[in-house]
Design a binder for these strands. Structure first.
Lengths: 303, 303
DNA sequence: TCTACAGTTCGATTATTCCGATGTATACTG
DNA sequence: CAGTATACATCGGAATAATCGAACTGTAGA
């Protein structure tokens, strides 16, 4: 494994950003030949020309543009990290800042977060969505107060985040009435070849579905894979295909999307977690959320 | 501006990942004193201890954990970049892979994408959601075929992506019946102090709303700010507050979320774009999408 | 054709990285 | 409680890479 030289990349990035080697020199306080040379070795290492000369200007090649965009992301993260370490907390007003995983149905997210609006004074909520990994990153940098996900935070390295199980729910399949009518006979074997709208491969919900399909030897027709459950339901509502949702919100799903329940997926259970940076959830609004979720949200049925 | 030393960071990252300097040495093919030393200079540069000795192990300090997570992001991007340049396209089967901006209402996204399911043979769709910036990054690396956003791609550097305007729509405010009844009298001045669910500050839709509020000298009570429009509607449906949505999907919004329209926001118009890596959209499913959107989706009213 | 500008090439110089040897603390072993 | 293996820290010199000034090449404009 040969490593990318990030310093070369940094010089390249600055040249691309400023539009010329000369102006990058000023910014980086280096001599022209230095950058010129480093740029050349970067191109050699990558085996791609990054700039093409156009008159006496440099313009990015196609490959250069791709590299530039990645570099932009990389160094933006680096600067963010520097800022945080220098103790310039990125402005955090007096409100609850929550990260919500894409994989959590919005109706569930609403049910979890809603108590925070009800507390007196009315906490203001700020919601960001992203992949769980990104959200945890921002949680650990104390940019978020709370992260909602459907899986506990993995800990390859022991990380200082703490998982609070809010509740769990079984999973059911839903579809518009005509689809449901058609496939309801001879369940579950009728589902082979049936059109499915599925979450991405890496999501816990998808694993539950796949396992269930496996057990029943069903090979569905996959119409599409979606990172966000809200898009799945947008498609599902229009009768494009069959989709899965937690039974905890069965009633809302049925009425809101005008769909019918096909069947429940036996053993499989989705879980919902709040993840905080401290062992004990401190933010008052967050405490309320966790309490209400544990006691009321999913507690009633089956217990 | 003093730059982060990304090579030191890389060593640190590997040590944290592998759990010890010794094992990082194997991976990086370096001698143990080398890494030990580099780690020390990194700590000195940052002014933070990153590891604490626990017996003869090293464990990450609080600061170390923050740095580690950022490093993870940074070097994951770096590896992705290397992969792409080495011509290992990250597995792209025969389907349409679309990036959808968080900021696009799912109902709009559905309407835009739906034609692709209808074409014969039935294209399989794969949908990712993220911020427009990240999506464009992946588009330029040819990991996506198409990106749907509500603003054309900015071009700080001339980038090889092309914007295709799919359509535009006015904006209206919605709320549940009780809320609507209460605020409908003396619009728009009645809205001062009214509870609002808003998209994030940087979104085009938010700018339209803010501008309208500004013009009418309304100062609403902001309940929360959301990155994803689907969460806004989940809150809005439950009567938490007033929210905005494009009039193009007024009917669906009203029936699906059981809300009523308060009023339209005069001049403001949201736009929807498909962004592709080539000047001409090539992917057959993508072509269909763009065609249908331009001709039918938003074309009828007002034209 | 002359000049200003932008980037390149070429050694010489300087800074940084890297390693082996050695030292210190910690865990395991009988 | 030695004796030994493990893991990291420290040190100084050797190897490597980055940097610079000076001279060179090509372009654009006067």
């Amino acid at each position: 494994m040969e490593w990318l030289n990030y310093h070369h990349l940094l010089y390249f990035w600055m040249v691309a950003k400023r539009g010329s080697i000369a102006r990058a020199c000023e910014e980086l306080r280096l001599a022209q030949p230095t950058i010129s040379g480093q740029l050349r070795t970067l191109e050699e290492n990558l085996g791609e020309k990054l700039f093409a000369r156009q008159g006496r200007r440099l313009v990015l090649t196609e490959a250069g543009q791709v590299v530039y965009r990645y570099a932009d992301e990389i160094f933006a993260l680096g600067e963010e990290l520097s800022d945080i370490l220098k103790g310039r907390p990125r402005n955090r007003p007096m409100r609850l800042i929550v990260g919500v995983s894409d994989l959590i149905p919005k109706l569930i997210a609403y049910r979890i977060l809603e108590p925070a609006l009800a507390i007196k004074g009315g906490a203001q909520i700020e919601c960001y969505e992203d992949t769980p990994e990104k959200l945890l990153l921002r949680l650990s940098a104390h940019e978020l107060d709370l992260v909602l996900t459907d899986a506990p935070a993995y800990s390859a390295v022991r990380v200082r985040v703490f998982n609070h199980l809010l509740g769990s729910s079984g999973v059911a399949l839903f579809a518009t009435a005509p689809l449901a009518r058609f496939y309801r006979k001879h369940l579950p074997s009728s589902l082979t070849g049936a059109p499915f709208l599925l979450p991405m491969k890496n999501s816990p919900l998808r694993q539950i579905i796949d396992q269930w399909l496996e057990v029943h030897s069903i090979r569905p027709r996959v119409l599409g894979e979606f990172q966000d459950t809200a898009l799945i339901t947008a498609f599902g509502q229009s009768g494009a295909g069959i989709f899965a949702a937690p039974v905890a919100i069965e009633r809302e799903v049925r009425s809101r999307y005008r769909v019918a329940k096909l069947c429940e997926l036996g053993a499989g259970v989705t879980e919902y977690y709040a993840i905080s940076a401290e062992r004990k959830i401190k933010h008052p609004a967050a405490t309320v959320i966790a309490e209400v979720a544990k006691n009321k949200l999913f507690g009633i049925p089956g217990q």
